[in-house]
């Protein structure tokens, strides 16, 4: 098992290296001289040349790349052009809303998706299954920003139950934060539950036809116990995978929803950086998001060993 995790870790490092390479060289494709961009329209050619030297932009691109890799490896993601502070700091400031949004969204998605998927599998082909499968299909094809706008109109503007946008005053109590996160988390929860429903259903259907389910029934267990203990226990691995990946993808993938609800999260940071061509911020955010994705993947692998004894030994 340790060998497997070690090998896994190795391939994760390669993936991170490839992400960094891709991000670096693609950014260099972008039109415009980064130094000129940093100094704005008023800069003289001399100023630009000096800045290029300061940032090492006059060195060959491969040397620049290696220097940049070294910086990343030590945790330095560079300096934002517009925000006047290190990228890592800018990201850290925006981490909280994104973290809680991802956490609440994936909780909603799992709490809705897993029971619905189980019910759908147990009553396969019946009305429940048709309704659940139909709704899941619908949810997967709703643009989250549009659903967000509709929800804002309904629940914030018309009914006034929730704040329209934002994350509240700095230092606001946590309850107020939750109120601000309720609508966006519900939107993302609904949209992301679709995949969880599908995986849960498929995985449960698979397991329910296994021989040990018949054994469990032959012991006289109630159907609830057969389904929840014997079947669900075996269906967990793919379900954990999809829930974990959903959480991972929400960390950087909630861009649109964060924008709609005016949440000052990482997605919001990326959008404004894109519109202002603040490349260090974009690069840094991409590295961080990919890093979190990769770490959650590793975490999923570790969780497997607790869920499935066959992996443990």
């Amino acid at each position: 098992m340790w060998l497997k995790l070690g090998r896994r870790l190795g391939s994760l490092i390669i993936v991170m290296f490839l992400v960094a390479t891709m991000v670096f060289f693609l950014t260099r494709l972008a039109p415009g001289d980064p130094a000129a961009l940093m100094l704005g329209d008023q800069a003289t050619a001399e100023d630009i040349a000096r800045l290029r030297q300061v940032y090492g932009l006059d060195k060959p691109i491969l040397v620049q790349f290696l220097l940049w890799l070294k910086e990343i490896a030590t945790g330095n993601l560079g300096q934002s052009i517009f925000l006047q502070r290190p990228v890592i700091q800018a990201i850290a400031e925006r981490a909280e809303p994104t973290f809680f949004l991802a956490l609440f969204s994936v909780s909603v998605a799992a709490l809705v998706g897993i029971p619905a998927g189980i019910a759908s599998a147990v009553w396969r082909g019946r009305l429940v299954d048709q309704i659940v499968s139909g709704l899941a299909m619908l949810a997967a094809n709703i643009p989250s920003f549009w659903l967000g706008l509709i929800f804002i109109q309904l629940f914030a503007v018309r009914l006034g139950w929730f704040p329209v946008a934002g994350y509240g005053e700095p230092g606001a109590p946590f309850m107020e934060r939750i109120l601000h996160l309720a609508l966006p988390a519900t939107v993302l929860g609904i949209v992301n539950s679709a995949l969880i429903v599908r995986f849960t259903r498929a995985s449960m259907l698979d397991v329910l036809s296994d021989d040990y389910i018949r054994t469990a029934r032959s012991k006289g267990l109630s159907e609830a116990r057969v389904v929840l203990r014997h079947a669900f226990g075996n269906a967990l691995v793919p379900i954990i995978t999809v829930v974990g990946l959903t959480a991972a993808l929400l960390v950087g993938g909630a861009i649109v929803t964060e924008t709609v609800f005016g949440l000052p999260g990482i997605g919001n940071l990326v959008v404004s950086a894109v519109l202002r061509r603040d490349y260090p911020v974009i690069q840094g955010a991409l590295i961080v998001v990919a890093g979190i994705y990769v770490l959650i993947n590793l975490l999923i692998d570790i969780i497997y060993t607790f869920v499935d004894p066959r992996v443990r030994y």
């Binding site: 040990y212 032959s218 267990l221 014997h230 004894p309």
Partner: peptide, 23 residues
Amino acid sequence: RGLRGAEIAMVFQEPMTSLNPVL
């Protein structure tokens, strides 16, 4: 269900797959 396992019990053909792997 009250009889299954209590008064009538069953042994199946496939020992490799008839036991729950996670318990």
